[in-house]
Each structure stands twice: as structure tokens, then as C-alpha cells.
Design a binder for these strands. Structure first.
Lengths: 246, 246
DNA sequence: AGGTTAATTGAACAGTGTTAATATAACTTC
DNA sequence: GAAGTTATATTAACACTGTTCAATTAACCT
């Protein structure tokens, strides 16, 4: 009984070649332009060979996607870890900004696009690769979450609003992504003059809001509840009672 | 010399059939699943016929895109036009929210996706259809811009920061879109509990920020400039000096 | 009726992702 | 070294995609 295999370093090498070829093609031309045959030609193999290493074209893309999240995570971690959580948050948003410019195609598939097959698994995650991708994506958000938790540490009101820290983190990320996304879509190209200024102004505004909120939280909830009398008629009043319920 | 045509109502009807078939298919299955042959079968014509009315598959999609913006515009306009600009803004964000849930596929191609051929015309817009689409898209943003301008009307500091109103409008829209987009991508599905609450909390926070800002603007710039002494070391301070320069 | 011509079509092309049968090549055992 | 075993690689095909073009249809005018 013989159990013959090709040298494992060789098979690993071909898989690497395929991955690398996909990466280069993808970073040059984006999602739509990359085809199995192009990848095969660049990797120096047959189109069918790819299916020995990836079940799907989507599976291959998932590897690319995961690589993208890994790169972003590395960039985020490379940032000097300041003791001030706000400095960290601000640095993260700057990294996020630069990433969207330096790796536009990565950014697209990571945040704007969708490899739908993998991103919404309503039931059990049939593919364990999908799990890995989700994990590495959440690691990125985890850094923001951690900084945000650090920022709000010591606020007594937090116990009654457990989802607040997460909400603040997701809102910050959402704001960053939204501005980047709409800018890149070109939908407001005629209106916007300075993208960078718009982005960081929004970020700073939100961070300032967080600072003010923390001060109020530390000053005690009483001031919060009294806050502002309900105005008459249709005049608008933004309540912040949300995080209290549920 | 004869100038024979098929009855014009008939040709208009086939074009309508094609458009309607695309619309229905699209709203059921989204961008990727819709093919020319499916459209043709549903419209009761040959695949080649479609190319009599649309130069491209992208051109056909552009019509769908435009329809999406038209629907959104209609929804925005249907909102009772309150005298308080903040009420209007808040209503717009609510419409935007509902639209993203009621017309998810529309939302994708309008804000997350990209028919890249048409959205980034660096030079002259070769296709006048692209122009029409841009126009109807900007009409939507125009409503927000108008409300925002109403809100800041009378603030004396605006003359030195002409881009501020636009920036605030785009930031509001960006925030809304970012949260919707990341929610729909599923990237933070494990973390987020109440999407609606997260969304409107972010909106209300921003509107509250605008209210505060306006108060400060009306109180005069002096208080703004003094604002807050620069903290020591690495501690973060969000400056709001941006809108002043340039 | 016959002519003109816009609208429609069937058939084909080049391309896509994917797969089944086949061929290759590396290892073990004789 | 030769034969056998088997993981890897390839060839050829399938069903599909968007798109084009020559040929056909059908409505109008003379």
C-alpha cells in the first residue's frame, strides 16, 4: 500500500501562486475584471487546477477578503497604542481613511461589496472559511470596541445601558464608512470639495460629542433626565433616552 | 417616399414591457441574478430586441437606477414639509431608513453598488443618460441641502465657512448610509442588537450636535475661539477649526 | 397590391464559471 | 530499475453570460 503525494512544498507553492495571482489581478482591476482563466494564466496553471484548491470562485475571493482584513488589522495594530482612548480612536479612523485610499479594491469588497454567499449565513455556517473571515473582520472592530470601552470605563450609568458602548463604536465606524462610501460612489462629486476635511471633520465632531457625553455621564444622570423640556408643537428635540430602554 | 413606422404606442409599449420586466426581476433577485435572457422571456420578446432600446445592459440598469432615485425623491417630498428644518431633516432620515428596508435592491445599486461606467465620468459625460441619473440623484440630496441651509440661515459666521452647510448635509447623509450599509453587509451582525435604535440614535445625536453648534454660532464666534484650552501631551482634543480655513 | 423601412428575430461569437474524464508525475514497494 | 498506486494537473466539454448581425416580419404610404 503506497501513499504517494507530491512534495508538500510544491502543492503549497501552487496554491500560493494562485492566491498571489488573484491578489495582483484583483488589486489592479477589481472584482469584476478578474476571471478564473486570467488567474490561471498568471499563475501558470490550468483553470481547472484552481478548483483543486478552492471549491468556488467565491471561496477564492473569501481568501482575498480575509487577507484584506488581515492587512487592515495589521495597520491598526501598528499604530502606537496611546493611553488616551480618544487618541487611539482618532488614529484608527485615520488608518481607516488611508486604507480606503491605498487599497480601494480591498475596501470595496470588505465594506461596500458583499460576497453574499458567505456574509449572511442565517443558519449554521456551513463553511468554516466563512467563520474565519467573520472572525478576522470582527478582530478589526474589536480594536475600536476596546478603545471605546476604555473611553467609557468608570462611567456609572453604563450598567443600565449595556449596548451603548457597542453602539457608539459601530456608529463611529458607520460614519467613517458612510462618508468614504458615498465619496467613492461619486454621488455627491459635484458638491464635495475636500474629502479629507469632510471626513475628519465628521470624525472630530463625533469624538467631541463622545467627550461631552462622557462628561455629562460623570456629572450624574440627574442632569441628563432633566436636560431639556419638551418643546411645543412640531419643533424638534433629539432625545437621548434611547439607550435606557432595553 | 414612405416613412412607415410601427404604431408609436406599440414601440413605447415594448420598451415599457422590457423596463417593467427588468424592474420586477431586479426587485426580486437583485443585480447579479438578472440576465438579458430572463428579461427577454419575461417581457415576451427576444434578447436581441432589448438592444433596440438600450445600448447596453448597463444602460438598462441606469434606467432602473434613475427610477430608484425618483421613487426616493417622491417619498421624501411626500413628507409633510414642516417649518422646523430639523423636523424635516429627521423625517428625511426616517424616509431614508424605510427606503433601505422596503427597497433593498434599489438601495444597493443606488448607494452601495456602483454602475461604474456611469458614476465616475472624469471627463465629459459621454452619455446624456448619465447626466439625467446624476441630476435625479442630486435632487434627493438637494432636499437635505435645502433643509440644512434653512437650519443655519441667519448664522453670521457662515460667510467665512461657505462649505459648512454642504458638509453638514453630506455628513448626515453619510452617517445614515454608513450605518445602513454596514448593517446590511452583516459585518457586525454578531454585535448589533437593535438596528433601528442604533440608526436613529446616531441621527438624533448628530441633529443634537447641529443644534448645539447653531446655538454657539448665534452666540458669537468669540466663545468658539476661546472654547477650550489645548490640553497637554497626547490627550485628544477635537478642534472645530476646520470649517474656518479655506 | 407593392414598396419602404422600422422593429424583431434566430443564430452565432467570444467570453464566463464549473466539471468529468483523462493524463501526468511523484512516491512506495517489488 | 520496473511496476503499481494515487494525488495533482490538464483537456475538453457543458451551460451559461452579454452582444452582434444578417435575415425576417409587419406596419405604414403610395
Amino acid at each position: 500500500m503506497a501513499r504517494p503525494k507530491r512534495p508538500p512544498w510544491q502543492v503549497e507553492q501552487t496554491k500560493n501562486k494562485i492566491f498571489q495571482a488573484t491578489l495582483e489581478l484583483f488589486n489592479r482591476q477589481g472584482y469584476e475584471a478578474v476571471t478564473i482563466r486570467k488567474i490561471a494564466r498568471r499563475a501558470g496553471c490550468s483553470p481547472a487546477t484552481i478548483y483543486n484548491y478552492y471549491s468556488d470562485k467565491d471561496a477564492l475571493y473569501l481568501d482575498i477578503l480575509t487577507e484584506g482584513f488581515a492587512i487592515l488589522y495589521q495597520l491598526l495594530q501598528a499604530e502606537p497604542r496611546s493611553r488616551d482612548p480618544l487618541v487611539r480612536l482618532r488614529a484608527y479612523t485615520a488608518v481607516f481613511y488611508r486604507f480606503s485610499l491605498d487599497h480601494p479594491y480591498y475596501y470595496d469588497i470588505m465594506f461596500s461589496f458583499h460576497v453574499p454567499k458567505y456574509l449572511d449565513y442565517a443558519g449554521t455556517p456551513a463553511e468554516e472559511t466563512a467563520f474565519a473571515e467573520k472572525e478576522v473582520a470582527l478582530k478589526n472592530i474589536g480594536l475600536i470596541l476596546e478603545a471605546m470601552a476604555d473611553f467609557y470605563r468608570g462611567c456609572p450609568a453604563l450598567r443600565s445601558a449595556p449596548g451603548m458602548v457597542t453602539g457608539r463604536a459601530l456608529t463611529l465606524l458607520g460614519t467613517c464608512h458612510g462618508i468614504i462610501s458615498l465619496h467613492r460612489s461619486g454621488i455627491w462629486a459635484e458638491l464635495e470639495t475636500d474629502f479629507s476635511a469632510l471626513y475628519f471633520s465628521a470624525v472630530d465632531d463625533y469624538l467631541q460629542k463622545l467627550t461631552r457625553e462622557k462628561e455629562e455621564l460623570l456629572a450624574g444622570e440627574v442632569r441628563l433626565r432633566a436636560a431639556r423640556q419638551q418643546p411645543t408643537g412640531e419643533e424638534y428635540s433629539s432625545r437621548r433616552s434611547f439607550w435606557k430602554k432595553r
